[in-house]
Amino acid sequence: MNAAPTAVYSPRSLATALAVLADRAPVTVLAGGTDLMVELRTGRTQVASVLDLWGVEELRFVRAEAGGVRIGALTTITELRRQPSLGAWPLLAACAADFAAEQIRNRATVGGSLGTASPAADLGPVLWALDAVVRLRSRDGVRDLPIPAFLLGYRRTARRADELIESVWLPGRLPTERGAFVKVGTRDAQSIAKVVVALVASRDAGSGQVTAVRAAAGSVAERTVELASLQELVGRRPDAAALLAVSRVAASRDCAPIDDVRSSAVYRRHALQRVVCDMLTSTLEVPLEDG
């Protein structure tokens, strides 16, 4: 249990929100509240005052921009699933379909998920694999940070106290590319990931060589991590044995899982390896070995 915050600011415009951030520090930003409300209730998080962005309509948009798409920070998970203009990024809908429950999806937002920076976030690996760029805005201007430069550690980001996450931009995708999203949860619905992986990969139709692969995983380190070892596959024509080998390297080197209330380090590594191997096999269309 915990005492209520002393002030709650509910601005209707981005300019007012930025002014509150600049002038009323320290202020905790609330963008949906599916994480913060629970944390407040348990008493683990103490806040002096809250900036509730829910009424800032300027942050609620999805629009084509610079060969890609820009997604406003207040876009809900439900909208990720339903927006026709996001059809070229099917991983978003795949992630949203497995995300918590209907009520949570209606409140949880892209900006809220990024700002919370939970290592178990479902969206983190997806945005990483899709090369997302986070736009931060303060009264002084904007900064654009790629996801790896934005997610710094356990619930820690590069956002300054006077900045808001305004939006994320996703580059357009190549038609040859295939993606996959797999979440291993504690049950079939309403669960938090024990391991979550997003992967995009493409290969040259003529030569069969892997032209690109990008994968990131959640719940296997103190923050979302890239499975960088998979870069070894680029330029190669891997067979099933190669995929098995590279997935074992990734599960050994690219993550640092822990034992916690949801799972064990051993399990996370094992599941990550099996899931990644499976995702590579399906996205790269590598025939399974006999037996």
């Binding site: 348990t42 049950r187 079939d188 619905a189 309403q190 669960s191 938090i192 209330v261 949801r262």
Partner: peptide, 16 residues
């Protein structure tokens, strides 16, 4: 108790 909330104290849902 380690599973101190409904998010970690897992019971089957209708989907399960």
């Amino acid at each position: 108790l380690r599973q101190d909330r409904m998010a970690t104290c897992i019971i089957p849902t209708a989907v399960d």
